[in-house]
Structure formats: structure tokens, C-alpha cells
Design a protein around this nucleic acid. Structure first.
Lengths: 325, 325
DNA sequence: CTTGCTTGATTAATCGTTCAAGCAAAGGGG
DNA sequence: CCCCTTTGCTTGAACGATTAATCAAGCAAG
């Protein structure tokens, strides 16, 4: 390994000067900087992150904790996060909290032991991580806007609900996966708010809810609004089994615009998160906190985007349609 | 931050003794070890990874490079990898090579700069990473078995093909996504081998291939074997549009057992990778190389598993069935 | 009583970098 | 001609651990 010392020896200066020249900090003449740079390049010098970390107390590494790396949204988050982090010369160390809050704390501890400079946390359903010795950015917790960046889940709910209302549905089913999830509760809250009281809406949850939703369609509901594409796909299967066509007899919507949403049949109308924006803001928050600045736009929510595809349509049976005002 | 020095001062010994006591290396009396341990626990001592890394030259961090973090298989790989690594007290730093071989090299370089002890690489389609200054484990390259661990893609092909043959199909379509991918070529090779020459099989590729496959079904093919669940789902949509039922008129198979495979309709027959096994072996290879041992079972391939669901069935039309011998 | 071995601890160097403090030379102002 | 400031570089300590070398003491054997 070629160190600063080697370069110093070759060029005939002290190590401090080399350090200064390379980092652009102290006072070094233009000419000297050039000579040192040149030699460094020749030797293929790479600074030792370990030494630097030891001296400065900063590793340049961010820890990323996800509730379950198996989460279908994880790839996109991880990717954008890693790109955003890289721009700021930060690395990302991953940890999996495997479903349990205890494991989440464990994961955080492990990351801290590794000396991360900051933490990016997508918290376990229903938990909010305790205060940490390093800056932390919480992703997608709806409730607590402090140092958190989240999609506007309620706003997303409003978007789909309005779409469904606009095209004339008046009896719908809302289908959630797990009532523990704040995110899903927020989405539902948004949906209900936008539906208003003109429109009849039942809320069902989980696997049992899927069956209930189908039954409700047979009882006259014309739209099913799922809080996740995964749930929507499950419903879709049940609907086929029950010989109910989409969007002919019932409209179907999801959330998150997962990989399969555009290629399933019919292509699913859904609400997409602006993952890029979220990831960038999260990293931005963290890195400004690390620098000691006050992060801008902290706590602001990121708007979602309605993606209208083929799974939603005007209710066929005129009697079920809402009269246009 | 509490350091070894603080503990040494408190207990009244030298830092060397503390280091020895805590790591269990040199010669320290039982009693002294206990006292030091106790004090360390009281103070909540955490060794500085930076200092250790600087001195020993080992960071305890593995770099993970994936061709595209958006890959639907990534979550499972990342999760198992991170668990496997953690067992061996290793961390995982991620990097994304964003589709291009150049970016892949870039990503590798960045990880090396961060001082990783080893590299886990899922290579870009059609590339194999050049020799590296640290141990490397290549995941899912079919061709070069050297320090690589891969699913037995060809074997997986054999499995589905045999299944399809067994239930009596005799005219089938094989549908690939991208001919550049060695993995997909291997899968197809396995399929063809197992089909033998009794069975008529056409191979199509990409988006255009989807349409061709559907046409071929209309011309009498009774099964479509896709090299990925994603492609299978796409075909499924086209089949619905063409009013062709699955598995009634055509059987459909995929690869990889992705999240949506069990919940789409009909549930997809597919071939699953043993992701756990692959990840564990990869980490095992790396960590034994780091320790300087010769890794066991290097280059061996990991068997795939056929998951039979509802998308495959005996061809309905007797004339299209293969006569049972 | 001397020699030699074992045990349990210490000393001091080292990893590669950063950074405050210091210092010599040059230049400018009075 | 002297003093002060600026420039450009050096000195040396420090970060927190590891580790080879050393050493004192205790004990057994001869």
C-alpha cells in the first residue's frame, strides 16, 4: 500500500504538506500541489479510509435499516439511496431488522458499532426508533414529521379516491393488509376523506378481507381500492376465480407501482411513490446534519403520483353509477 | 468515547493487557480478565473499528455489487447475504453498477477504496470481473466456475422441461428476455436438453418474442416456458388479451419464484433458486479466503427446485397430447 | 544457591492520516 | 534598517487499537 509517507519521501516534503496538498486545506504553493498530485497519481495513491476515520472520527458511511429487506420496494429505495449517498461520497452499509422491533434495535447497534456517521431507517411497522448518538433520518413514518421524510400517503389516498369518485363509483371497498401499519392507515384515511359521505365505503383487512371484498362486489360494490399492489394482485386472482371481470364489473387500484403493476392484466391503476425524491431528501437531511447544518425542508412530505392504467373504468351498470351533477 | 486507555487507567493496568484480555490473545490471568471485562461492560466500551482496521488492515466489511439493485431478486439475496455475513461478524456495503460494465468497475473501485475485505459480485450480463486485490465471489455466472457460486440454471431448465414433457406436451415455446444473459442461455440449454427431439420447441426473445409465442400457441403449441417470472407475467397478459386460457389452452412456466408468482392467477409454476444456500456459500467462500483457507465446494452449483402450481396442466386437446408409452 | 522455565504483565513501536503550532524566508511599510 | 505580516513548509502529537519484544517474579530442578 502506498501511503502519504511514500509520496512525501519521493517529492521531498513532509507528510503534512502532502496531506494539505491532496485535501486542499493548509497553505501549499500551486507548484507543490501539482508535483504532489502528479506523484500521487503515478503511484496510484488511495487514502486509507481507516486512518482517516480514526483521526477525524468520521467514516463516511451511512447505515440503512429496513424492516424486511424482502420488501418489494427495497430495491428502488436502496438503489436511489446508494446513488444519492455516493454523490456525497458516502457509502451505505445495510442491515436487516427481520421483522421484529428487537432485531431492529440490534441492527441499529451493529451499525453504530461499525461507526456509521448517520442512520437511514425505514422503521418497523408501529415502532419509532429511539434517540441515537448519530443523526438519523426516518423514512416513511407518517406520524412523526421530526427528521423524517415520507411520501404523502394520505395525499396518495386522496388521489386514487378522487379518481374513483370522478369516474362515477358510489359504492366501494377499501382493502388493507395489516392495520398495524401506519402507512396503510394513512392511505385509508386519505381515501375516506376524499370519498366524502356520498360514497359508501367498507374497510376490510388481511386475507379474510380479500374474500369479504369479493363478496361485497357481488353485493354491488363497483371498486376495490387496495393499500398495496400486492394485495391488489391477490384480489385480482380471487376475482378471476369468481368470474368477475376487471375493470368490466369492478375497478381495482393498488399502491406503490410495483414491478408487476404495468404488466399484469389489466395493467393496474396505482399510486406511485416518488422514491427518488424521498431517498434524496433522506440523504440530504442526514448529510446536512452530519455537517452540522440545519436541514432544509425537514418533515415536509413528498407528494405521490396517480398512475392511471386499465384496471379502473366507469361502472358499467348505469344503476350503480353515480349521477353526474 | 470510551477507549481501551480509559479502562486501563481505571483498572490500573496497561492498554496492552486490556487489549489482550478483551480479545483473549496474550497471557492474562483469569482474575484480571474478569476485572477488565467488568469495567468494560460498565463503561459500555465498544472497540473502535477504525483503529482496529488501521492496525490490522482488515475492515470486516464485504462489498456487494449488483448489476441493478432494481433486480427483483435483489432483496432476497441482500437479506440472506447480510444475515450470513453478520454471523461471521462481517458487514455489507452495497454498490450499484447501474446496468453498465463501466459503472460496475467504478462500483468495485469505490468499494475497494473503502477498504472492503472481500467482494461479492453479481456480474453484469455478459461480463466477468477482472482480478481484484481482495478475495472475490461471483454469484450466478454460469460459465466460469472459479470462485463462483451459482444456481444450477441448466439443471433448473431440465426440471421444468421434464415436468412439461411428463404431463404430455409435445409442441412448446421457449421464451427468453435477453440473449446476452448467460443465465438465460443456460436455462434454455437445460430445457432443450431435457425436451429431447421428440418435442418440438421454438425459442423466441424479448418483447417481440412475446407476440411470437402467442402466435405459436394459436398455431398449436401447448406450453410456453419463460426464462423469468417477469416474462411469464407479461405473456400471461397477452394471453388474456388473446382470450387464451391458462392452463386450459396453454401451460405457462417461469423462473425464480418471484413475489407475485404464487398470487397471480393462475399461480405460476416456476423454478426457484435456493437463494439462502447461494448466499451462504458465497459468504463462506469469501470468508474462508479472507482467513487464507481454501474454500470448500468452490465452483459447485446449487440445485434449483421445481415449484408446481396451477399454470401447468395436461394439454386438453387429445390430438396435441403426446401418446403415453 | 544458581539456572532455567513459566506466568503475567509492561514497553514501545506502529498502522496512515490530520491538524494545531511553530518557524524560516520573503516582501512591504515606515 | 527594523519590524510586521504573509507565505510555504515542517514538527510533533494525536486518534485507538494491536503486537513483538522485554522484563520481573515465582517456582522447580539440579
Amino acid at each position: 500500500m502506498v501511503s502519504i509517507k511514500k509520496i512525501a519521501g519521493d517529492v521531498g516534503v513532509s507528510t503534512a504538506t502532502v496531506s494539505n496538498a491532496l485535501t486542499g486545506k493548509g497553505r501549499v504553493s500551486q507548484e507543490m500541489v501539482a508535483r504532489i498530485q502528479a506523484r500521487a497519481d503515478e503511484l496510484g495513491y488511495r487514502p486509507s479510509t481507516a486512518a482517516r476515520a480514526l483521526k477525524t472520527g468520521q467514516t463516511g458511511i451511512l447505515g440503512l435499516v429496513m424492516p424486511d429487506l424482502t420488501n418489494p420496494l427495497f430495491p428502488r429505495i436502496a438503489q436511489t439511496l446508494s446513488i444519492a449517498a455516493e454523490k456525497r461520497k458516502l457509502g451505505i452499509l445495510i442491515a436487516d431488522s427481520r421483522g421484529s422491533p428487537d432485531e431492529q434495535s440490534e441492527a441499529l447497534r451493529r451499525l453504530l458499532d461499525r461507526g456509521v456517521d448517520g442512520l437511514l431507517v425505514v422503521p418497523q411497522k408501529g415502532t419509532s426508533p429511539e434517540p441515537m448518538p448519530v443523526p438519523i433520518a426516518v423514512i416513511n413514518t407518517a406520524s412523526d414529521p421530526k427528521n423524517a421524510v415520507s411520501a404523502d400517503h394520505a395525499g396518495g389516498g386522496v388521489l386514487v379516491a378522487r379518481h374513483i369518485a370522478d369516474i362515477g363509483h358510489r359504492k366501494v371497498v377499501i382493502l388493507g393488509g395489516d392495520p398495524v401499519s401506519e402507512v396503510q392507515r394513512d392511505r385509508i384515511a386519505g381515501i375516506r376523506r376524499a370519498l366524502g359521505k356520498d360514497i359508501e365505503a367498507d374497510v376490510f383487512w388481511g386475507d379474510r378481507g380479500v374474500a369479504q371484498a369479493v363478496a361485497q362486489v357481488q353485493a354491488g360494490a363497483t371498486a376495490i381500492m387496495a393499500t398495496s399492489d400486492l394485495i391488489a394482485l391477490r384480489v385480482r386472482s380471487e376475482l378471476i376465480r369468481a368470474q368477475i371481470s376487471v375493470p368490466g364489473q369492478v375497478s381495482l387500484t393498488g399502491f406503490d407501482d410495483m414491478s408487476f403493476a404495468p404488466i399484469m392484466h389489466p395493467a393496474l391503476t396505482t399510486v406511485a411513490q416518488n422514491v427518488d425524491e424521498i431517498a434524496n431528501r433522506a440523504v440530504e437531511i442526514i448529510s446536512s446534519k452530519i455537517r452540522g447544518d440545519v436541514p432544509a425542508r425537514e418533515g415536509e412530505t413528498v407528494p405521490m403520483r396517480l398512475v392511471i392504467r386499465q384496471s379502473t373504468a366507469i361502472p358499467t351498470h348505469p344503476s350503480k353509477r353515480r349521477p353526474t351533477q
